[in-house]
């Protein structure tokens, strides 16, 4: 792959900073603001672009695990099991394991469906489950929320909003299902 993606992005960043932004009229305040944001976004892209696929793989593992856990919780009780539609979503809605996927866009869409399913199942347990089931579901979701928070803080670190964020690659290798 030549030029490599990081090289393409670095070139865009240089031209934006050295050529385009200085040429903008002084009174074009809206354009200046957008150009500054584009420059900052290029820095962000350079920081995270290499980790996109692993990010989605880790997400897939987390939310597949959560779906399994929530199904187990819902299935403990016949009434709740019925309410959440046991034995679970139709097979064609259940994402396949990340290792079987090769296309990043497919994997991302797969994860979005998966998050929708876990969200719907969690909500139904909250509405129909007993106190113990609701509590167990909450703890399972909280564990996934904490892991996702750590990933997101690393992903967003170049925006400058998260404080003391880690490097994304480090977090993903730590959370990867293969490590």
């Amino acid at each position: 792959m030549l030029p490599a993606v990081p090289d393409l992005l670095e070139a865009l960043k240089s031209r934006m900073a050295e050529t385009i932004i200085p040429a903008l009229p002084e009174d074009a305040v809206f354009a200046q603001e957008q150009a500054g944001l584009m420059l900052a976004t290029l820095d962000w892209l350079i920081d995270v672009q290499a980790d996109q696929y692993l990010y989605e793989v880790v997400e897939n593992g987390d939310h597949l695990g959560l779906l399994d856990t929530l199904r187990g919780i819902a299935g403990d009780d016949e009434e709740t099991g019925d309410a959440v539609g046991q034995p679970g979503p139709p097979a064609d809605e259940v994402p396949v394991q990340a290792a079987h996927l090769v296309d990043l866009d497919d994997l991302r869409e797969c994860n979005r469906r998966l998050k929708g399913l876990t969200g719907a199942l969690y909500t139904r347990i909250g509405a129909h489950g007993g106190p113990d089931q609701v509590d167990r579901a909450r703890h399972a979701l909280a564990a996934v929320a904490r892991r996702q928070e750590r990933r997101e803080r690393a992903f967003y670190r170049m925006t400058g909003f998260p404080v003391d964020a880690e490097d994304l690659g480090t977090v993903l290798r730590d959370q990867s299902p293969t490590t």
Binding site: W44, R153, G160, F161, P162, V163
Partner: peptide, 10 residues
């Protein structure tokens, strides 16, 4: 870009 603030708020 400011979705980064959303990430912080999460």
């Amino acid at each position: 870009f400011i979705s980064g603030l959303g990430g912080r708020f999460v």
